[in-house]
Design a binder for these strands. Sequence first.
DNA 1: TTGTAAGCGTTATCAT
DNA 2: ATGATAACGCTTACAA
Lengths: 346, 346
Amino acid sequence: MEAITIKDIAKALNLSTSTVSRALRDSYEINVETKRLVLEYATKMDYRPNPIAQGLKENRSRAIAVIVPEIANNFFSEAITGIEDVANAMGYDVVIFQSHESYEKEVSNVRNVVARRVDGLLISISNQTKDVSHLSDLHERGFPLVFFDRVSDDIDTYKVVADNFSGAFKATDHLLSTGKKRIAHITSSAGLYITKERLSGYKAALEKHEIPFDANLVHYCVNFGYKEMEGIIESILSVDPMPDAIFTASDRLALACFEILLTRGIRCPEDLALIGFTNLKVAHLLSPALTTVTQPAFEIGQTAVELLIDLIEKKKRMSSTFMIKLPTELVVRASSGSKVPGFGGS
Amino acid sequence: MEAITIKDIAKALNLSTSTVSRALRDSYEINVETKRLVLEYATKMDYRPNPIAQGLKENRSRAIAVIVPEIANNFFSEAITGIEDVANAMGYDVVIFQSHESYEKEVSNVRNVVARRVDGLLISISNQTKDVSHLSDLHERGFPLVFFDRVSDDIDTYKVVADNFSGAFKATDHLLSTGKKRIAHITSSAGLYITKERLSGYKAALEKHEIPFDANLVHYCVNFGYKEMEGIIESILSVDPMPDAIFTASDRLALACFEILLTRGIRCPEDLALIGFTNLKVAHLLSPALTTVTQPAFEIGQTAVELLIDLIEKKKRMSSTFMIKLPTELVVRASSGSKVPGFGGS
DNA sequence: TTGTAAGCGTTATCAT
DNA sequence: ATGATAACGCTTACAA
């Protein structure tokens, strides 16, 4: 409970607090012997500077905040691991908030972040968030801000995302290379940046294989609802000629799609190929047909926090968008036993 | 960037900082009109007290720390969501650390927690941790400490866990009730408290069904390695008579087991029943055979943090263990094997 | 009812 | 090379 302070050291060594502080901070102009003494005693007593006091003094907290929609989501939890990894190594703690896909919660989280005087904010915005004025306020006041994954078009700063274009290209190209001809594409809301990127990748692959684009094969799933997906599957299965493969644009879409296909007795890959754009670790257990394109969640987190800390420490201000796209990876399963996924209870 | 301080309010209203502080804190003896004025102005300017300064003054930080082995793990991320849920509602922020199952990292995290002057610690210890002196030190100094899930026997405080006994009982009982006779049990390290509890539940169910306990059917998986699990499966399949069901004690074990069985062309549930003790959300997609027992991760988090905040705010000190066991739930999937096809191996 | 001042732990700016 | 002191924002005796 009672942590040792610089004062205690000063008293014990008959020095002034400033001398001790200097010794600890390895300041210029200090007697080497005094320094040794202080350092020795500090180590012995396991002295740790109080970051609260330091923060008050320096007007910083040595903590950064992360706001994500949901922590219980493989992509975000991996990204956070990447964030924590780099941040801790650089002496920053990470404070995590969840918006639970609620705009109100996100705004309240941002307020909290400001009140906490964290040194910077990494955010992946909720899918309900249209108005980003709670963030542009911060940004305009010079508060270090970096987006990752779910980025906003309306604020000019660093944005770290997966390369959705090439990911979609790889996925589609893979299906076409294995002989598929008519590939349905189930994706998220038409307006989203990532949706557009993925559609472009899909189209580019079709072009490469000289297959004409058919708009009827593209399905936008807006609410991620089971009913909605059922309707989509229905129309995919009833169109003539029937598609011989499906490229889904996310974990949730891939899972919902897979589940509905299963209940209709459709087995991948004999009847229909299915490819997910996913971070789901157990995808290969669901079906060997579930070839996936994984997003580099961990690296996205690492990169984002590196940029953020750079902004913080160099007191830089971004006045234009700088988008970093990290490569995705096509994972084609072999029949050999792969490694045990990193899921698990306790 | 420039947050408004109590000083700014005082200056603007021609008051002293203490008066403003009193108005804000709804202190005794303050002119109701002055208070109104201050509150009004504070609201208008969106004043937020600086928790760093408050913390320095009150020697607290209004933050609690959580140390878990891994955040990218469904159980822990759900527990953290529960923790955050309650903590935020009570005005606390949550600072998260991962031990990555490393004893050294855990110790370093604990140091950091102390340095941060968080008000309390929730911890689920790493599976490498044998010596808990880094925690008993804290506890003895009166630092609020609550264990959840991975608890230590050596420290007397609140411990919040799933009811592993009844969970294991339900799982085993379910298998036996569906006609299985020889149930292998794959579980974690023999020394762990949860392992013992689960084994007891397993035995109790056998007893209920008047089936003798066979120690040869119990397999301890220590490293969670693929190789290790392969050996275990090997020995399960080669014993005579062969078991007709497997009860695995965690997500990771269930998945590893499932994967290896698949590569050997063993389809559940025709050839062998498999039951997981799991929080994996997609278990039902893996196989209808994967009946599961879910742990109330979210509630465990909520309960743990409630107890911790109680310790903090009442300045209570625990001097004996108080174990809270939250109920698990048996999730039996719809009629197995009928509509949903099995998975063709490889 | 309000103001003054001290103090929380640390660092920076002066002196010495 | 070292010490005294002020300051960060806030709370709280104590004074007025």
